[in-house]
Simulated assay, not measured.
Amino acid sequence: MALTLARVVQTCSAYPSQWDAWTVDGHYLYLRYRHGVGSVERYPGADIDTWDGDESELLAEWDDGTDGGTIELADFLTAAGLQLAPGAEESAG
Rank of each mutant, 00 (worst) to 15 (best):
V8P: 02
H27Q: 13
W19V: 02
D52W: 13
Q10V: 14
T50L: 15
A6Q: 08
E72P: 08
G93W: 10
I71E: 12
D64M: 00
T78F: 01
E61T: 14
A79D: 05
L3D: 13
W19P: 01
T4W: 01
L84N: 11
G87Y: 01
P44K: 09
R7E: 12
M1F: 04
Y33D: 08
R7W: 04
D49Y: 13
R32E: 14
G36H: 09
L82C: 03
F76G: 04
E57W: 06
G36R: 00
I48D: 14
L29P: 01
L84F: 07
Q10D: 12
G26Y: 00
A60T: 13
D20K: 10
A80D: 07
S17F: 04
L31C: 06
A92W: 05
V37E: 10
G45W: 03
L82S: 02
E61R: 14
D63T: 03
Q83P: 01
T4C: 01
P86G: 05
S91T: 05
L3H: 15
L59W: 11
V40D: 10
V24G: 00
Y43W: 11
M1I: 02
E61Y: 03
C12W: 06
W51K: 11
D64A: 06
A60F: 09
G93K: 10
S17C: 03
E90A: 05
C12T: 12
T66S: 11
A14K: 14
D52K: 13
V37R: 12
L82D: 05
L3P: 06
R42G: 00
D49W: 14
T78E: 15
E61P: 04
L31F: 13
L5G: 02
A14H: 15
Y30W: 09
S13W: 06
A85N: 02
L84K: 09
L73K: 05
Y15Q: 14
P86L: 03
T70I: 04
V40N: 10
A14G: 15
Y15K: 14
W62V: 04
D67C: 01
G87D: 09
T66V: 01
E61L: 11
R34Q: 13
E55K: 14
T4I: 09
Y43A: 13
G53Y: 02
Y43C: 10
D52Q: 13
A74T: 12
H35F: 11
Q83W: 04
E72R: 15
A92V: 15
A60E: 12
T50S: 15
T4H: 00
D52C: 12
D25Q: 08
E89L: 11
E89M: 12
G36C: 01
D63H: 06
D63P: 06
T11H: 12
T70L: 05
L5A: 00
A85F: 01
V9P: 01
T11Q: 14
A2F: 02
V8G: 03
Y30Q: 09
A88M: 05
D67A: 11
L58N: 10
L29R: 01
L82V: 10
L59C: 11
G93N: 07
Y28H: 13
P16E: 05
G45K: 11
E89R: 13
A6N: 06
T11Y: 06
L73V: 03
I48M: 12
E72K: 15
S91F: 04
P16G: 05
E90T: 15
Q83H: 08
W22D: 08
W19N: 07
G69R: 07
Y33G: 08
A92G: 10
E57P: 03
